[in-house]
Write a protein that binds this DNA or RNA. Structure first.
Length: 959
RNA sequence: GGGCGCAUAGCUCAGUCGGCUAGAGCGCACCCCUGAUAAGGGUGAGGUCCGAAGUUCGAAUCUUCGUGCGCCCA
């Protein structure tokens, strides 16, 4: 290939490598992943780390539904960075991925797809369809995670639908029952009277509806401020659901709102009425009846009305006025009719004040026997007029009109739903002071990263209500309760739950649906008092948060577990409310310990404007598509580059920028490899430390600091710090300084000579350390690079079996580092001078320049010994130094060198032309050529193309 | 509406205890090289440190109140 014009080019040691500049990750990564799989890399790593100290990152299970999105990508890549780092640090760090397989979204979708046919299927058949759907998504998501290069036990994941997992859930439940935490209580839920079924929030469709709107005066018995004078006083409420009035047990006011006690004259009867209204609403409410005049008899805050008593408008019942901060003056009267059996907020208030939860409505939406005679059997909607008429007749009705508002309807039959109290199962968070004990463990025994995670989850634990663990669905783990249909009495004991646990372990939770009752009777249920013919199976399943919250039992605990507690849980910050909380509650209640030592959270993926990604807005990036287009390593680098403690901005442009950074790193590796192709020919140990140039020792000292800082960053899970440091090293310290400076030595010196070998020694060490440092972030690229390193007996076959790099104290040299810092500062000033020269077209490359520096005499004396080093660092032909007392600041001037240019090394040297046999070369190049001619074994072409590893780089044939 | 957070250059990040003209890399513009070549090198332009008020000799940094955005709850 040598052109006659440049015969000397063939005598240079130019870079040679088969490591391609073009990454082609879309094709290369899947091939590598295939290789890892067939070589069973994960198992090899497990074996290699067997017996080492364990550090387990316990995977929080994603929901098995839909393609993975950027949030999954962020989460799983962060986990992988941790696991790979721990593994390289020598820990036994298994990673068992999991999936959350039960729950409403899958069941809802399955039922929806079935349409009318769903009604004909029994629960077991629905469950079969749900299982098939969940498993299908597990397979899809598994492939998508693997495509990202996530290292884990993908052949043996944990699934919440596995019998062994379902058994573990009941194991936890049994312990909670034994601990006295589990109880049954009425709670209002959305209920469709047409379909006679419970509905989840996600199954409601809100649409506008016209309802009654009535204002009712409740007679107050006592408790109004004394200054307001004698009664009779009233409290005026507003409601759009008259049918819930039979369940009224309180009237809620806002503690800080101002209320007025007023007297107005009823336009119909002409008699005066004294009632209470929120001050802001008095004129508006009175205007409904055309009343413009009223008398203010007193005012007070809502807080002063607390505990006042009133009498129900048509029942013989006294109830209190209570405080609730959700009361507003947006609508109504500022006094809220409260029926805990018919509303979520009302229920919470009822719990707070110990009020009864009344719900005299049956499953078809008719008033039950608990309702007054005159309502019994009526559909609640149809009873509204009767109730209004009764209020009018009794004189309590202030006003009656209509109101249009958004009201929930059933997704299936499209009819309005109601809130109806039903018996639900709970975990009492105040039983045995579970709340307080959990709070103490949160405060004292868990490390939260970032630290505010503690106050976040702590506040949630402090304020959370009892945990309702029952759901009226089919796709989940049944609460194994047997009811006596004569009394409704439930049987749920530690022994009974453990009996069903063992059954589920053998047959899965399906047994509950497929086996007849007589095969489900636990040994502690006495058939003489509870005859089998009177037993019926409970139809509730467990809250899926209870399932995933039991993963510490299913995956960590026990002889086959990964180890309890886990070293780390790592999820999005929404899990303070979700998985972290359900996990710590169940773990504290059953073991007294937190299931994790450290909890690390990340923010959410948002778009380039910082707003959340959503399909409907159209700003969501596809994780699957991005991986295909740019490659997993590019996206992994992107994730590693950002501080994930806060929200993480991701955009197409960001990925492109990450892609650029990737190319820079890849090219740095490529240059290193290109200059190490013949490195296998000699023993690095044979390179004498004294042969290293100062710049080599400087670079190796820098490498030490890179290793230390990256290690420190990984230890703190601050991957972006490691990224910034490593990237800066590649881009600035290597590419633009060290490697640039090294080119003359690498290309022009004798191939096996000490100067070139010294450089290669440094490059090899840098290369190896970089490959390891970047292996967690760029597992594919580093594995590829690893295959190009010269073979050594001690090196593992995969970089992922290798250990994390260690700094070599022999290269720590602060004095040298300081010297270089000063020289590099001077170098920058020189470059500014060269730039002027270049603009003037006086020079092209730095090699053509001659630099003159004037310094004060002491400064000049200090620089003198490093003058040659500075010349090398600047890649100029010569630098002259003059002492000048006037040069307070360095005075730098540059010209084109007057020496001729060496045709081989392109330096401008006075020695060019001195040798008669090589009239266009400098003395150094002449000497190198003569040495090459004298030593027959050094054929640079053959040497440079020798493959580093025969297996991956088949030898090229010397020309 | 409440709880927990975040806000420094177009992007990703530094900025110690309150103390120099607020830094780096990328990107961008311009230039060089053509022996890392769909590479490589250089120079340069980019900042209302989210806003306002306060504390202080001095605030990106501390305090308060806002604004925007996120998660969770209502």
């Amino acid at each position: 290939m040598a052109t006659p014009a440049k015969p000397y080019k063939d005598t240079l040691n130019l870079p040679v490598t088969r490591f391609e500049m073009k990454a082609n990750l879309a094709a290369r990564e899947p091939a590598l992943q295939q290789r890892w799989q067939s070589e069973r890399l994960y198992d090899q790593i497990r074996q290699a780390r067997s017996g080492q100290p364990r550090r387990v990152l316990h995977d929080g299970p994603p929901y098995a539904n839909g393609d993975i999105h950027m949030g999954h990508l962020l989460n799983k890549v962060l986990k992988d960075l941790v696991v790979r780092y721990l593994t390289m640090r020598g820990y036994d760090s298994p990673y068992v991925p999991g999936w959350d397989c039960h729950g409403l979204p899958i069941e809802h979708k399955v039922v929806k797809d079935l349409g009318p046919r769903a009604a004909a299927l029994d629960p077991a058949q629905i469950r079969d369809l749900c299982r098939a759907d969940a498993l299908r998504w597990v397979d899809i998501q598994r492939a998508q995670f693997q495509r990202l290069g996530i290292l884990g036990d993908w052949d043996r994941p944990y699934l919440t639908l596995q019998p062994r997992y379902e058994a573990a859930i009941l194991d936890v439940l049994a312990d909670l029952v034994a601990g006295g935490y589990v109880f049954r209580q009425l709670k209002p839920i959305h209920w469709c009277p047409h379909d006679r079924t419970a509905l989840a929030e996600a199954e409601l469709e809100y649409r506008d509806q016209s309802t009654p709107s009535i204002y009712v005066n409740f007679p107050i018995l006592n408790g109004t401020p004394a200054a307001w004078g004698d009664g009779p006083w009233h409290a005026m409420i507003w409601t759009t659901t008259p049918w819930t009035l039979p369940a009224n047990v309180a009237i809620a006011v806002h503690p800080e709102l101002v209320y007025l006690g007023i007297r107005y004259t009823d336009p119909d009867s002409g008699s005066p009425v004294q009632t209470i209204l929120a001050a802001d609403l008095v004129p508006k409410v009175l205007a409904l009846r055309g009343i413009t005049q009223f008398e203010e008899l007193g005012r007070c805050t809502g807080a002063e009305l607390e505990h006042a008593q009133y009498r129900h408008v048509f029942l013989d019942r006294a109830s209190p006025i209570v405080l609730a901060d959700y009361v507003t003056v947006a609508d109504g009267t500022g006094l809220v009719h409260t029926a805990p059996g018919h509303g979520a907020e009302d229920y919470r208030t009822g719990q707070k004040y110990g009020l009864p939860t009344l719900s005299p409505v049956d499953e078809s939406g008719r008033f039950s026997d608990e309702a007054p005679d005159w309502l019994r059997g009526q559909q609640v909607w149809q009873a509204n007029p009767a109730i209004v008429a009764r209020l009018r007749e009794l004189g309590w009705l202030f006003h009656d009109t209509r109101f249009d508002h958004s009201y929930p309807h059933c997704w299936r039959c499209k009819k309005p739903v109601l809130f109806r109290a039903t018996a639900q199962w709970f975990i009492g968070v105040d039983r045995d002071d579970l709340r307080g004990r959990t709070r103490k463990i949160i405060d004292d025994s868990v490390r939260w990263l970032p630290a505010w995670g503690r106050s976040r989850i702590g506040g949630m634990i402090d304020n959370r209500p009892d945990w309702c663990i029952s759901r009226q669905r089919h796709w989940g783990v049944p609460i194994p309760v047997l009811y006596d249909d004569r009394t409704g009495e439930p049987h749920l004991t530690p022994a009974s739950v453990r009996f069903h646990r063992d059954l589920f372990a053998r047959e899965g939770a399906d047994a509950w649906y497929t086996r007849p009752v007589d095969q489900l009777v636990p040994p502690d249920l006495d058939p003489s008092t509870h005859p089998i013919e009177h037993l019926r199976k409970g139809t509730d399943i467990l809250d899926v948060w209870f399932e995933s919250g039991s993963s510490h039992r299913a995956v960590l605990a026990g002889p086959d577990g990964l180890g309890f507690p886990a070293f780390l849980y790592l999820e999005g910050s929404d899990q303070h409310r979700g998985w972290f909380q359900s996990s710590i509650l169940t773990a504290v209640a059953t073991t007294g310990l937190a299931p994790f030592e450290t909890v690390l959270t990340h923010g959410f993926v948002v778009d380039d404007k910082g707003e959340k990604m959503s399909k409907s807005v159209g700003n969501a990036l596809s994780a699957v598509q991005a991986t295909e287009q740019y490659g997993a390593d590019v996206l992994r680098l992107y994730v590693a580059s950002m501080d994930y403690a806060d929200d993480v901005r991701m955009s197409e442009r960001g990925i492109k920028e990450s892609s650029e950074a990737y190319r820079k790193i890849r090219n740095t590796f490529r240059f290193l490899l290109g200059n190490l192709a013949d490195y296998a020919d000699f023993d690095p140990a044979a390179v004498h430390p004294a042969s290293l140039h100062p710049v080599d020792r400087w670079a190796l000292g820098l490498l030490n600091s890179v290793i230390r800082e990256a290690t420190d960053a990984f230890e703190r899970f601050e991957f972006y710090r490691a990224y910034q440091r490593i990237y800066h090293f590649c881009s600035v310290e290597l590419s633009s300084i060290y490697l640039d400076v090294l080119k003359d030595r690498l290309y022009a010196e004798l191939p096996h000579g000490p100067d070139r070998r010294a450089a290669q020694f440094a490059l090899a060490r840098i290369h190896e350390a970089l490959a390891r440092l970047l292996a967690p972030i760029l597992p594919h690229t580093c594995e590829e690079v690893w295959g190009f390193l010269p073979d050594q007996p001690a090196r593992p076959s995969s970089v992922h079996l290798a250990l994390w790099p260690e700094p070599d104290p022999a290269f720590d040299n602060p004095e040298l580092a300081n010297r270089f810092a000063r020289l590099l500062e001077l170098r920058e000033r020189i470059f500014v001078a060269l730039e002027t020269l270049r603009k003037d077209k006086a020079i092209g490359s730095n090699q053509e320049a001659a630099v003159a520096i004037r310094l004060t005499p002491p400064a000049a004396a200090a620089l003198q010994p490093d003058l040659e080093l500075l010349t090398t660092l600047c890649i100029v032909s010569e630098i002259t130094l003059t002492a000048d007392p006037a040069a307070a600041e360095p005075i730098i001037s540059a010209t084109r060198s007057r020496h001729p240019k060496c045709e081989r090394c392109w330096n401008l040297r006075p020695s060019v032309g001195l040798a008669a046999d090589h009239p266009t070369l400098c003395a150094r190049c002449v000497a190198v050529l003569r040495a090459l001619e004298a030593s027959p074994q050094t054929d640079p072409a053959a040497s440079l193309s020798r493959p580093a590893r025969p297996s991956t780089t088949p030898g090229s044939t010397p020309a």
